[in-house]
Design a protein around this nucleic acid. Structure first.
Lengths: 251, 251
DNA sequence: AAGTGGTCTAGACCACTCG
DNA sequence: GAGTGGTCTAGACCACTTA
């Protein structure tokens, strides 16, 4: 029994292509069950490992998600919009809202941690500090619809934290950290965001409940007060399937 | 629905963790060869499929790349910076530069295609057109250091293309499409960019020479002329490992 | 020619889900 | 209890790279 031959494309790939086409065409949609390993083995006369490989193609592309003891299901994609400029505009946090207020979806913060730490070199550089200088660190995880969607860590230079002591509290009050900074004349006036994309580490996969085939987005944000003085540096790791990032800017 | 809990970590995972740690610590770096399937089988007393699964973990994370007949190698990450706002600023294309001028790296355009087509619904919507109306389409692939890094398609409404006929040419002249639009009073004054992240389709994997474990970034850009009139809509698919996107904006 | 990864077969035991 | 995906073994042939 020489394996079926078609010159070039491997069998598992052809099966994956066929299933992908059914998803693309809409014949299979969000939450539908894909044919299982046994079904594929029988239908195509192949070994188990080959059927698995076909399914793992789709899983690694983020189009499907395996559920132990149940099946492999087509995966849904309902991203949340995150506005760059508008989101951080003074209008919003100046009125006591949070940067998340432009979202229609519910959100929660869980696992908020506030501490001090000597930051890594790139953080110190972003804040314009000498190394070895400790900074205030605020770490938190955000949930949307009860599902973890991002981890965020923000760093505040000691001088800044000293000027606005409430940023050390868990509850920083209406408008959050930026509003407290504004009260002491350190309002952010400019932001820089750097976006990188990559596959998550196993730890992040677990922490954000990411199915296989889901990339993450790293956003590194620097907030600058008047005179281009850096007042905050934030690192955010987001579930890439959960967001659409939007930036509006002038020519 | 989700998710999985683990009592004991599988063998393939432990091996992958070990190798990942060697990469993270720097003991193995860019271009180094990882232990092969045979080595892992012997060293850990496992079957071939298990060794393969360990290596495929790293490959799917984008940390390593397999080379047929040779080995599995640690993968390098040298992204190019792409500026949002600054890049598209009038300063640059007003002086006859291209949006790529802020890059230090060499770039090339290959496979430039200019034609007319009835666009998909979301494109028609972005350009404010009735459906079924044909638009001018410019498709091209960009190379950096000889390596394909992005595919871009831009759409121009028929009225806009009629006003600036040179946008139908392959060579649109100094400053490119935007400069031609500016000459007829249709200079873009505002841009909106939407960023999405996902795993590539097999076709994109081939087209952009993407190794497994490399996500792509989709940028959907709308250029608006005076009076918020949409003049161009562009869709870009980028090799996620090749770029850092930067956006600067005011509070 | 030897070694490598790519594909595939044919089994096995397990933990889990579901009716 | 039947079915599912998760893990693993022990083989095989192939195309390709490297020396």
């Amino acid at each position: 029994m020489p394996t079926s031959e078609n010159g070039s494309t491997p069998v598992y790939r052809e099966i994956a292509d066929e299933l992908r086409e059914q998803i693309r065409s809409g014949r299979l949609t969000d939450g539908d069950r894909l044919p299982g390993e046994n079904t594929l083995m029988e239908r195509h006369g192949i070994a188990r490992a080959t059927a698995r490989q076909a399914l793992s193609e789709l899983i690694n592309e983020g189009l499907a998600s395996p559920v132990r003891g149940s099946g492999v299901y087509v995966r849904l994609f309902r991203p949340v919009r995150r506005h760059g400029s508008r989101r951080l505009s003074r209008d919003i946090w100046g009125r006591g809202g949070s940067i998340w207020q432009t979202q229609e979806r519910d959100y929660e913060v869980d696992r908020l941690l506030v501490d001090e730490a000597v930051p890594e070199a790139h953080v110190a550089r972003a804040l314009g500090l000498a190394e070895e200088e400790a900074v205030l660190r605020r770490s938190r995880r955000y949930l949307v619809d009860g599902r973890p969607v991002q981890n965020a860590v923000s760093y505040l230079a000691p001088a800044v934290a000293a000027a606005a002591p409430r940023v050390r509290e868990h509850d920083t009050g209406p408008g959050g950290v930026y509003a407290r900074l504004a009260e002491v004349g350190l309002a952010p006036v400019r932001f820089t965001e750097e976006i990188r994309v990559r596959m998550p580490t196993p730890g992040e996969r677990e922490d954000l409940s990411l199915p296989p085939g889901t990339p993450v987005v790293d956003v590194a944000r620097t907030a600058l007060a008047d005179g281009n003085r850096p007042v905050e540096f934030g690192e955010i790791t987001m579930d890439g399937s959960a967001y659409v990032l939007q930036y509006d800017f002038e020519a």
